[in-house]
């Protein structure tokens, strides 16, 4: 594997994991524009644990994941009091607080950033991305995932059906936080360096776009979305011009017009699913003629 492709695969793996962390809340109807903040907690958590405290690598990951999950759990309560665009702003503000703390805390390297000594090569990143993908697919196939998707569509009816909306949403934030923590820890150990400027609002916007452009209705969405966002700018690089981000922006706008519900929708997955080719044909046609 060439260095170029190894670099692309590493960032793609981190992006896939990161996208799933945001997807877990988005699938239950909550938009999180604070992705960079959650990822930063994971990255700085393990950086401090391994480099400053000298703990082993596994402990760094354990701390990164648990710490981010715990912070997400706590932040879920005030954030879930808000709705729609206010939730987007609340999570955005949270991310700004995290990056501000990192910037002004000398123990975390401040504006100079922090070197991370333990290195993780690209393969564990790829395997982690596959593992997280499988985990989220499983989650969405479970009854818990069914409750998440029901909440996304109609919170009132889900509640009448017995779904504990608050508990499901807090659980989603916590699971999303754990996954974001993992993505941050992998980032820190692969690139061996963390700095507050990296965890910028732009990163939060990009990861939310991975999810929204990919589609929130199925677990395929974030996977396709992050592949699209990571690889398309690279292919556009082949053209060799500085216009590639302009073209990329135009592609994003076009996607929103052509596929407002995301690249992958529930109906598309149903259409492409092999099991459906053999399914009995619905008699809905007869009924629709009657009406």
């Amino acid at each position: 594997m060439s260095g170029y492709w190894a670099g692309i695969l590493a960032i793609l793996s981190i992006n896939v994991i990161f996208a799933y962390s945001i997807y877990v809340t988005a699938a239950a109807g909550q938009l999180n524009l604070g992705g960079a903040g959650f990822q930063a907690i994971g990255a700085y958590g393990t950086a401090y644990a391994t480099t400053t405290l000298g703990l082993p690598l596994w402990a760094g990951f354990a701390i990164a994941i648990t710490l981010t999950a715990f912070v997400s759990f706590l932040i879920a309560f005030p954030v879930l009091r808000t709705r729609g665009v206010y939730m987007v702003l609340a999570t955005y503000a949270f991310a700004q607080v995290v990056s501000g703390i990192a910037l002004y805390t000398p123990a975390l390297g401040g504006a100079m950033g922090k070197v991370v000594t333990e290195y993780v090569p690209v393969w564990p990143l790829i395997f982690s991305a596959i593992g997280v993908t499988f985990l989220v697919f499983y989650l969405m196939a479970s009854r818990f995932g069914l409750a998440m998707r029901a909440l996304h569509d109609d919170e009132l009816v889900s509640t009448i059906m017995g779904v504990n909306a608050r508990a499901v949403q807090v659980a989603c934030f916590t699971i999303g936080g754990a996954i974001a923590g993992l993505s941050g820890a992998l980032y820190a150990h692969h690139f061996a360096f963390v700095e507050a400027q990296y965890f910028s609002p732009l990163l939060s916007i990009f990861v939310l776009l991975f999810v929204l452009i990919g589609g929130t209705q199925t677990a395929w969405g974030p996977l396709i979305g992050s592949v699209f966002f990571t690889l398309v700018p690279e292919f556009l690089r082949l053209g060799g011009s500085s216009w590639r981000y302009v073209i990329f922006g135009a592609v994003i706008v076009a996607m929103m017009i052509l596929r407002p519900e995301g690249i992958v929708t529930r109906t598309l997955v149903a259409k492409l699913s092999p099991s459906r080719w053999f399914a009995k044909k619905p008699v809905a046609q007869e009924a629709s003629l009657e009406r």
């Binding site: 009854r143 069914l146 409750a147 998707r149 029901a150 996304h152 569509d153 109609d154 009816v157 889900s158 059906m161 779904v163 209705q217 529930r266 149903a270």
Partner: peptide
């Protein structure tokens, strides 16, 4: 739930 299948709606 418009984005869920018949079986998923019933299972809800």
């Amino acid at each position: 739930m418009p984005h869920l299948s018949v079986a998923e709606n019933v299972m809800l």
